[in-house]
Design a protein around this nucleic acid. Structure first.
Lengths: 227, 227
DNA sequence: CGCGCGCATTAAGAACCCGTAAAAAAATCG
DNA sequence: CGATTTTTTTACGGGTTCTTAATGCGCGCG
């Protein structure tokens, strides 16, 4: 079943451009001409991805994003004019996942859409993952270390799964918080500090000098398997 | 099919010089003697690249750039006399991608044109970039040098990403500052000096004599990969 | 030649972020 | 219902990163 994409855009020209570009790729497209309709359509159609213009006539696209983020983690891509630098950043902070600056080409649009959908849809990449003496089976939700079973709490495991899904890549604080605690806790970074410590105590040979579960100061964390 | 290049230039001498230099390389050339015609021709011919003189008789070349940028992402190269320092920067901030200062040689012209066309042809989804012994993976937010991992702080990486997004072309101080520090710091150019030094220390084989991360005095910086 | 401008370079204090521990609150389970 | 586990809060010390200011250099210009 092809993914559904919600397009919230007031200018008919751009909206039709989006519809035909995305439609040609096989996506199903739902169009909303303003913010109010956008929110309703988001709730009704439960799309796999939303593309939201920041310069909407009735109310700010950021409002739409905030409201959607209250109940959904669907990927949101923001459209912004070159002038709206500031609100672009606000949008990302409000929970948008990516942005495209107008004017933009079909190639760029489709590339961003693919990335966003891939990130959202992916089940924990492989079913197995191992590093050092640790082995994790995501399907069975179990892990062993030196053959001994390790126990994870629900949150610990979700956090680990989220990191493993993006193995080797940095996962931002916001992504982790959003994925594990939901959109309402996207700024409670102290949760991460506590749980990273617990994961390290369970996974790392020397928890004080992490080798697999690495910190990216000011950005997020990342999990790396051995070389 | 050879790329089409639009030349918006009032002085016949320079216009003919451009036509023959570009024509000899196999490009198709469309000439416009003033700004008004330039805009029309841009819409009609949909060229792959526009070269716009800043000192046009009817109205400012910056107007032309702004108007084109409302509907197109085609690369735009600006021609400026040495006196027009200020408007050169305005042009870049308005969406031009690169500039050439008059007088200029064929070699410089063709090099800039090649870079701009190559840049346009590649979807910005490009996740990888390499120059010298350095390799950067933007998706994973990682970089290596001679196989060794290099560590970047949050700001360093954002700066590098911004430069890489416009590989081979100039990025103005203002653009960099806005993208990395936000609009409130658009004039704090001293930040750039400090961080450029750090990037060079991490990326350049000989940081004192930069080969990739180049200074454009009075304008901004430019990242070039080796050819 | 001396001056001013913009850039490179350095260093130090401020601000911020992270790891850590431990207690309080909530949820789970027998 | 009480015990145990899990989650949420809070606090603080140490370390990293960011900001700021001072200095030196090279170049163009008067």
């Amino acid at each position: 079943m092809s993914p559904t994409i919600l397009v919230v855009e007031d200018e008919p020209e751009i909206r039709h451009f989006l519809r035909s570009s995305l439609g040609a790729e096989g996506y199903r497209v739902v169009e909303s001409p303003n913010g109010r309709r956008g929110e309703v359509d988001a709730g009704m159609h439960k799309p796999d991805l939303a593309i939201v213009d920041l310069g909407l006539p009735d109310f700010d696209g950021i409002q739409v994003i905030r409201h959607i983020r209250e109940w959904s983690t669907m990927p949101i891509i923001v459209l912004s004019a070159r002038i709206q630098e500031r609100s672009k950043i606000d949008a990302l902070d409000s929970g948008a996942d990516d942005y495209i600056t107008k004017p933009f080409g079909v190639g760029e649009l489709l590339a961003r859409v693919r990335v966003a959908l891939r990130h959202a849809a992916q089940p924990p990449a492989g079913k197995e993952l191992s590093f050092g003496e640790v082995q994790i089976n995501f399907e069975a939700r179990r892990a062993t270390r030196d053959g001994e079973e390790i126990h994870f709490t629900a949150i610990e495991f979700r956090l680990l799964a989220c990191l493993a899904k993006h193995l080797g890549m940095v996962v931002t604080h916001r992504q982790l918080l959003q994925e594990v605690w939901g959109p309402t806790h996207a700024q409670d970074t102290h949760y991460l500090r506590v749980y990273m410590k617990q994961l390290r105590d369970k996974l790392e040979p020397d928890p004080v000098r992490p080798r697999y579960l690495l910190t990216e100061t000011g950005v997020g964390y990342r999990l790396v398997a051995d070389d």
